[in-house]
């Protein structure tokens, strides 16, 4: 049985030499739901971009049993990891919802029948099946967020990695996204500042600060440690 995500001694430097990631190591088992928290600039987004090879640092990253460093694996890794970006407008660049959700399957070269089936299934999973013909740009932020998740689900990924899925949402849209995330069966790593969601949804939490993983604990125990949270720019929800 392979680990779903395995990161070992990962270091990433910006061109000016700043260490954005400094010796990061952790593993995530299949089916686990893990939170990634920490102050702005801690390196959360940079770490996420390593999980499907958009950025490459020194050290080892294995995802779904494949080495991320090897070029030959990249397309397969990108299909295995569904990356949901913070700003859905970055992810939705096609005229219609259908085109956006179909991007992954079309890129994979699937036949038309399967592309349509995948799009229908992905939209159904995020409860947006009636929106295929709509223009993404005109949807609400919460709806865009769910379409962005659907664009990764249509690739049938093993792992979902989400960057700030609840940022900028009103309470109802936030509740809808949390409900949706609870329903999805994939292994999950969620970078977020929303510790109330973490408490509700994610049993395990990684804390990052200044490019390092400073804690990897069960969520309830971590959230009780107020002094530790405060030291890393976080607040007990």
């Amino acid at each position: 049985m392979h680990h779903t995500i395995q990161v070992h001694n990962l270091v990433f430097k910006y061109p000016d030499g700043t260490r954005a990631l400094d010796d990061v190591s952790f593993t995530i088992a299949p089916g686990e739901k893990v939170a990634l928290v920490g102050p702005n600039g801690a390196g959360k987004s940079t770490l996420i971009l390593h999980l499907n090879g958009i950025l490459r640092g020194e050290g080892q990253v294995r995802v779904a049993g494949m080495e991320v460093g090897a070029n030959a694996n990249l397309p397969k890794i990108r299909a295995a990891v569904g990356l949901v970006f913070q700003d859905p407008d970055d992810q939705l660049f096609s005229p219609t919802v259908f085109d956006d959700v179909a991007f992954g399957p079309l890129y994979q070269g699937l036949p038309e029948k399967e592309v349509r089936a995948r799009v229908a299934a992905a939209l159904a999973a995020v409860h947006m099946q009636d929106y295929a013909a709509r223009v993404s740009h005109h949807l609400s932020v919460g709806q865009k967020k769910r379409i962005a998740i659907a664009t990764t689900l249509s690739m049938e990924p093993e792992i979902l990695v989400l960057d700030e899925p609840t940022a900028g949402l009103d309470p109802r849209a936030r509740r809808d996204v949390i409900k949706l995330l609870r329903e999805l069966p994939q292994t999950m790593l969620i970078a977020t500042h929303d510790l109330r969601m973490v408490a509700e949804l994610l049993p395990r939490t990684l804390v990052m600060d200044q490019g390092r993983v400073v804690a990897d604990r069960a969520t309830p125990a971590l959230l009780d440690d107020e002094a530790f949270l405060l030291a890393h720019g976080l607040e007990k929800p």
């Binding site: 660049f93 096609s94 005229p95 219609t96 223009v135 740009h137 005109h138």
Partner: peptide
Amino acid sequence: LAFLYFVR
């Protein structure tokens, strides 16, 4: 232009 035609 296709994007703009649909969106704006």
